[in-house]
Write a protein that binds this DNA or RNA. Structure first.
Length: 261
DNA sequence: ATGGTCGGTCCCCGA
């Protein structure tokens, strides 16, 4: 089965681009981020016509995540546990699907950006990452096939950006953020890309500004983290770089894994 | 040629 993660940067504006890619790549599951709409505005019919079941956690204008699955969605949960009433961002949705070889749990994650670093946006990011790690730990204890996929807004290694000097003061490159991502991995996850490929200079995001795509000025911030049970089934990983050259592209491209599952 | 972006709550904010 093929599982994709893709920050689409508005599901409504991007709909023709997304459906075109889905028809070509034919992923079985898609973890989508930055849908930028409320649940009722989500274009359900267009994706149902392509054979997907859908779980959505939307909000007005910003953020928003969804999971599309050709397998039945047995249950889904909106929001990352551990938040209080002040956290109204739609950044996490989790679902259990019925794959051919049994149930699989997936999350679609839009981790906070955290810029600028000297504001409460950065502390929100770090708190959110702590909550994610705590929740991920409880999920790992289930010893299931588990995939945490999404836009992590973390430049984990120097090779994950075109020029570390340019990113040195950015919230995506902050040592605390990179350490927290490492701590999440250390709980027992396998990063699909690092496991199967791991070459430098393969990016998943190119800014719309400053001709970043044309100049090759990208960063690698979209990841699929696998539990040991899911990692055992990992066959391949692919960054769908061509999607950045489509008409009306997202600034992120899909990352796709193939699981023997 | 000293610029060069998108999207949405649309002229300002978030990325």
């Amino acid at each position: 089965m093929k599982i994709a993660t893709w920050n689409v940067n508005s599901v409504r504006t991007r709909l023709p681009t997304i459906t075109k890619w889905l028809q070509e790549a034919r992923p079985d599951v898609v973890c989508m981020q930055e849908i930028k709409c409320q649940d009722a505005q989500f274009p359900y019919e267009a994706f149902e016509a392509l054979g997907y079941n859908i779980a959505v956690h939307g909000q007005k204008a910003y953020n928003g995540v969804a999971i599309l699955s050709k397998y039945a969605i047995e249950e889904s949960t909106n929001g990352l546990p551990g938040g209080d009433e002040t956290d109204d961002h739609a950044r996490y949705i989790e679902a259990v699907i019925s794959a051919d070889q049994g149930p699989m749990r997936l999350a679609s994650i839009y981790l906070p950006n955290g810029n600028p670093k000297d504001t409460d946006k950065f502390t929100y990011k770090l708190n959110w990452m702590h909550r994610l790690r705590a929740h991920a730990k409880t999920l790992l204890a289930f010893e299931e096939k588990l995939v945490l996929a999404g836009d992590y807004n973390v430049i984990f290694r120097d090779e994950d950006c075109w020029d570390p000097k340019v990113w040195a003061d950015d919230a995506l490159f902050a040592p605390e953020v990179r350490d927290e991502f490492a701590a999440l991995m250390w709980e027992g996850f396998t990063d699909a890309w690092l496991e199967k490929d791991g070459r430098g200079h393969e990016y998943t995001f190119w800014d719309y500004q400053r001709g970043a795509w044309q100049r090759g000025h990208g960063i690698h911030i979209d990841h699929l983290l696998l539990s040991p049970q899911a990692a055992d089934a990992l066959q391949s990983v692919h960054i769908a770089k061509d999607a950045r050259a489509m008409d009306k592209p997202s600034d992120h491209v899909p990352v796709v894994i193939e699981l023997d599952a």
